Amino acid sequence: MTGRRDADAELRARLRRAAGAHEPDRARILARVERGMAAGGGTGGHQRPSRALPGWARVAGATVAVAGVLVAGGSLAASTVSGDPPAPRSVAAPPGSREPGPLRSAGAVDPHSNEFWAQSNITLRTSAPLTALTVELRVAQTGSVTSTGAWRSLPEADFTFTAGERDGFLVYRWTLRPGRTVPAGEWMFAGQYNHERGGRDARGDRYSATATAASGRHSVKGGFTPGESG
């Protein structure tokens, strides 16, 4: 019984390997091989007497022949396919940044602004340390716009700060002191101001930033989300 189990296991293994390579009509091929084995004999039309083989042995022998046919067919198919070079494909390049350098920025009116007062936020992101930095916020004079203060998330002692009106704008400017460094990270600069009652349209406001890193001088600029604050 042990021999039969081993043969059965070998049969299943060979069938699995052969099936993985090709998919012809296995039943038809197996029947044809078994008929050929049963008809094989001596010369002169007389069969040579032989001892009958167990059924499992006949099936195993037929399977070896079938596996050889299947493997040969699979190899032929593989060589035929591999002979044709794959059609060329065009691969789209991933979209790159349209703002080269370490700086990224965004401007927004603070959501806590109200009908009398507002705060404009500049978010500056840098992927490299900066040895020089100037950030400027320009708030359009839309009526009764007056400064009420400013702040930044970096140390106050690292910057000089000015605020004043110029050319129809309330201008806030932060400048990094010589010898100081802005580390890589995300930083905020904010200007606060009163304005006429009833909210304020920030579409005329602007900001800009210029910086120096190891890779050279870089700059960013932008506006603020259109609409009224407050």
Rank of each mutant, 00 (worst) to 15 (best):
N114G: 09
A106E: 09
E99D: 11
P95H: 08
G96E: 01
P100N: 04
P129R: 13
A108N: 09
R104L: 10
V91F: 10
T162G: 06
R152G: 03
A106N: 10
L137H: 12
D110G: 00
P155Q: 11
L154M: 05
T131G: 04
A132W: 02
L137E: 15
Q141N: 11
A108Q: 14
L133H: 11
P155D: 10
P100G: 07
A150Y: 14
T131W: 03
N114L: 09
D110K: 07
G143I: 00
D167R: 11
A93Y: 09
S113R: 04
G107T: 05
P100K: 07
T162P: 05
N121K: 09
E115K: 12
E99H: 13
I122E: 10
T148W: 00
A106T: 07
S120K: 04
H112F: 10
L154W: 06
L170G: 02
S97C: 00
P88H: 01
P155E: 10
H112L: 14
P129M: 02
T160W: 07
F161W: 15
D158C: 06
P86N: 08
D110W: 07
T162E: 08
S120P: 06
W117K: 05
S147I: 04
G168T: 08
G96H: 03
L154I: 02
F161P: 05
R89C: 08
G107L: 02
T123G: 07
P100H: 07
L170T: 03
T131R: 01
L124I: 02
T160R: 11
T146W: 06
R152I: 10
W151K: 08
A92Y: 09
A157G: 05
R89Q: 15
S153H: 00
Q141P: 05
L154Q: 13
A128Y: 00
W151L: 15
A108T: 13
Q141R: 10
T123Y: 04
T142W: 00
T142R: 06
Q141F: 09
A92D: 02
P86M: 03
A163V: 15
D158L: 03
F161C: 12
F116R: 15
R166E: 14
L133C: 14
E136N: 06
A87P: 04
S147W: 03
L103T: 12
W151F: 13
T162D: 15
R89H: 04
G164M: 01
P111R: 10
R152N: 14
D110L: 06
R138E: 06
A157I: 01
V135H: 00
S90M: 08
S147N: 09
A157N: 09
S97W: 02
V109L: 10
A106K: 08
S90K: 11
G96Q: 00
D167G: 14
E99M: 11
F169A: 09
T134F: 12
L154K: 02
E156G: 08
L137Y: 10
R166C: 00
G149C: 03
F169P: 03
S113I: 03
A92Q: 04
S113E: 10
T146R: 12
L133R: 08
G149H: 12
L124T: 06
S127N: 03
F161T: 13
T148R: 08
P94I: 02
S90E: 14
